[in-house]
Nucleic acid binder design. Sequence first.
DNA 1: ATTTCTCTTCACAAAATCTTTACACTATAC
DNA 2: GTATAGTGTAAAGATTTTGTGAAGAGAAAT
Lengths: 228, 228
Amino acid sequence: MSNGFSILVIDDEIQIRKLLEITLEANGYKLLFAINAKEGITMAASHQPDLILLDLGLPDQDGQVVLKQLRDWYQNPIIILSVKSTEEEIVKALDSGANDYLTKPFRTQELLARIRTALRGSFNQSQEPIIAFGAITVDFVSRIIKVKDEVLKLTATEYNLFTLLLKNDGRVLTHQYILKEIWGNAYAEQTQYLRVFVAQLRKKIEEDPNRPKYILTESGVGYRFNSG
Amino acid sequence: MSNGFSILVIDDEIQIRKLLEITLEANGYKLLFAINAKEGITMAASHQPDLILLDLGLPDQDGQVVLKQLRDWYQNPIIILSVKSTEEEIVKALDSGANDYLTKPFRTQELLARIRTALRGSFNQSQEPIIAFGAITVDFVSRIIKVKDEVLKLTATEYNLFTLLLKNDGRVLTHQYILKEIWGNAYAEQTQYLRVFVAQLRKKIEEDPNRPKYILTESGVGYRFNSG
DNA sequence: ATTTCTCTTCACAAAATCTTTACACTATAC
DNA sequence: GTATAGTGTAAAGATTTTGTGAAGAGAAAT
């Protein structure tokens, strides 16, 4: 459900906060709220949200000033939501470092699209997260696993099993748990499947499948992955 | 006087072009003009401007399509200028890769501020509009693909599928994802389409379609393009 | 109206994967 | 040492997934 992005809403109007809470959370964003400038700056600093929605009409301070203060150290996108629609106000906000400016009342889908655009621009520079250990490299985005720079060919089930173990690095997973996760609840007793697939995985990733280094057997319990 | 940034204006209305020429040049931008989609794409490729102002109501082609074609290879900011102000149109443009959307008539100072904002966040890193690998050459501007210097004749669907795979070089794309991208959400379960079109593509670009080198099958998951 | 091109659908062949079986191996308990 | 429960592995068979040619439907071009 979550898309991994957090958004801080700085707005004193309860209706707007409620509306944003419903629409943004429905789209997978994690929301934070502040009802005035002081609280907003504190929360931005303590939570480092991925994006800030800032109302310019705050009770305790001029929004343009808040914007400038945030921009002294806050690098992620800031989108202004304001009832003021004068050109002067918009130009000033954009030149103070705002990424976009929407006038209230705003259209929900447009706001969502502009949030996506702002997030796209600031986070696409980052590399794909790649996990590496020993001679093995795992790229979850590309769904590619390499052993000694050779692309490893895994079937869908093998890949699922491997990533399940990997995600629980160091932990013992019971046979039952693994079977339920990979094959579904009905297969919880088919421990033989597991043995077959574990053997195949070991053949592919272990240097010496007879003396496994990564996929360890916990006799009578299950398996444990050990990346280092 | 010059600020070093070049802007390509793609708009068929002479009044708009004149207005932009005066205001933008007065602010130090170097201007380029195109009066239709074809010319616009060509000029974008040949001059690699720092920013594009694109009108959606072009005479020869739908602006949303032009936007998508530009985004195949052009990475600098694109700001839409359009008389259309429906939420649907705006969302579509932003999700197709536009950085901002202004409805005509626009306010000059606001446009300037939004141009500054867009340029502020970009790193001018446009990719070459022509890419090559193995015996294959892809020209995103003219939309021509060559294999061993022979022009390859691809249908619209084949071209879309091919470039989708190409843009995700190395990544595994699921059947569902590809179907949704190419045929639309309603076709997410028509994996048979995909098989037919993948077979046709392979017949056209692979040296030995029985042992594909570029379009690889990930059984049970999807397909993966591999350019090298 | 006819031809050409593309897309969609079907049927079946081919390949890959999963499941099952059989049996060997290992560790622990007694 | 032997029994026993648990584990590992190869391989055959079953099933699913994928590849491919071809026929029919529609749309566009001639």
